[in-house]
């Protein structure tokens, strides 16, 4: 079976068509199928698996096949080394904020953003976690620098 191995050497339109797709190993279908299963078969001895791992195939919340294919395509379209696909744009926003902010940190945010980013950084993170924030006119880099 031939492997497409589409990489960053191909141009944008080619990446958009072929990125993340390969021939399905089991059926030979030229498009990867939808895999709706919640769970993946465990090894003979699963007792030393890290149940919080996002690396292996354990459970679809820890990473599923279609999520992985989509991530491959998006990373190619952005020329970025890695990608995580989540359930919504707001899951990605709140995921970034939750992952990288802790109590006592300060955030500089644009004063024109999607309402959920505003709600999270202007209200919820300050109220719940003691994160500080400053809203700035980010169209002027000097107001970000201040």
């Amino acid at each position: 079976m031939s492997k497409k191995n589409i990489d960053g050497n191909f141009r944008f339109l080619t990446r958009a068509v072929h990125g993340g797709n390969e021939v399905d190993a089991e059926t030979g279908a030229i498009r990867r199928p939808i895999t709706m299963a919640n769970s993946y078969e465990l090894p003979y001895d699963p007792s030393d698996l890290n149940w919080s791992s996002a690396d292996g195939q354990i459970y679809t919340r820890n990473g599923g096949a279609n999520q992985r294919y989509l991530q491959e395509k998006l990373a190619l379209l952005h020329n970025a080394p890695d990608c995580v696909a989540l359930s919504s744009g707001v899951a990605a926003l709140s995921g970034v904020f939750f992952t990288f902010l802790k109590s006592g940190d300060h955030v500089v945010m644009s004063n024109s953003t999607y309402i959920a980013a505003y709600r999270l950084i202007n209200e919820l993170f300050p109220d719940k976690f003691g994160v500080e924030k400053t809203l700035v006119d980010s169209s002027d880099p000097d107001s970000v620098r201040l």
């Binding site: 996002a54 820890n62 990473g63 599923g64 890695d82 995580v84 989540l86 990605a92 970034v96 992952t99």
Partner: peptide, 25 residues
């Protein structure tokens, strides 16, 4: 759907915290 992109060391942290433990898969 949503996505975050960047270097692997940053994206791995989001995968572990926001997907596996917050549940935004």
């Amino acid at each position: 759907g949503g996505a975050a992109l960047g270097k692997k060391e940053l994206i791995d942290q989001i995968r572990s915290q926001a997907m596996v433990n917050l549940g935004g898969a």
